[in-house]
């Protein structure tokens, strides 16, 4: 049984997603919805990783990080600069790049949950199946939010001369 591998993949993907969301939220402090929702989604992604703590132990996988997402030391600085630079031109391209990267990371986490879910089903671990199902759905929502936000942001950045 190699469920531990699948758990590790999910945990890593969600933790990375959490950190990335936190960084992106901070970097785009002047985009107030990205800031607030990005931060909230980061906390949720970290919590999703943590929700596997007992299963990680059961299957001998690595223990998920118990702390909140880590934006890195530069975060406060980044947030302040972002608000100050609210007037600067062309933050848009950076926003697009950041949202796209984060979307891909959310997709990585999403498919990791799918893989784990398949394993859990085949091992008939119904408790794990249930835990994975609701986390997977929430992860999908994070991706959909990023997709929605990107679809709104892209035209203004790309089409304005």
């Amino acid at each position: 049984m190699k469920i531990d591998h699948a758990i590790n993949t999910v945990t890593e993907a969600e933790q990375d997603l959490a950190d990335q969301l936190e960084r992106v939220a901070g970097r785009h402090g002047a985009e107030h919805d990205v800031y607030h929702l990005g931060h909230k989604q980061a906390v949720k992604a970290a919590a999703r990783a943590r929700s596997l703590t007992d299963f990680a132990q059961k299957y001998g996988a690595d223990a998920p990080r118990q702390s909140d997402p880590d934006p890195g030391v530069m975060d406060t600085l980044r947030r302040q600069t972002s608000e100050l630079l609210g007037r600067a031109q062309a933050p848009g391209l950076i926003l697009l790049r950041d949202l796209q990267e984060t979307y891909l990371q959310a997709q990585r986490a999403e498919i990791a949950w799918v893989v784990l879910q398949q394993g859990a089903k085949a091992c008939r671990d119904l408790e794990l199946v249930e835990a994975v199902t609701s986390a997977h759905e929430e992860c999908e929502t994070t991706a959909k939010w990023l997709r929605t936000r990107l679809k709104v942001a892209a035209p203004q950045v790309l089409a304005v001369g």
């Binding site: 002047a30 107030h32 609210g86 007037r87 600067a88 203004q156 304005v160």
Partner: peptide, 12 residues
Amino acid sequence: VMQMFRYAEEGS
């Protein structure tokens, strides 16, 4: 409108 004001703020 909040997004419009943001676009006006960043200059597009």
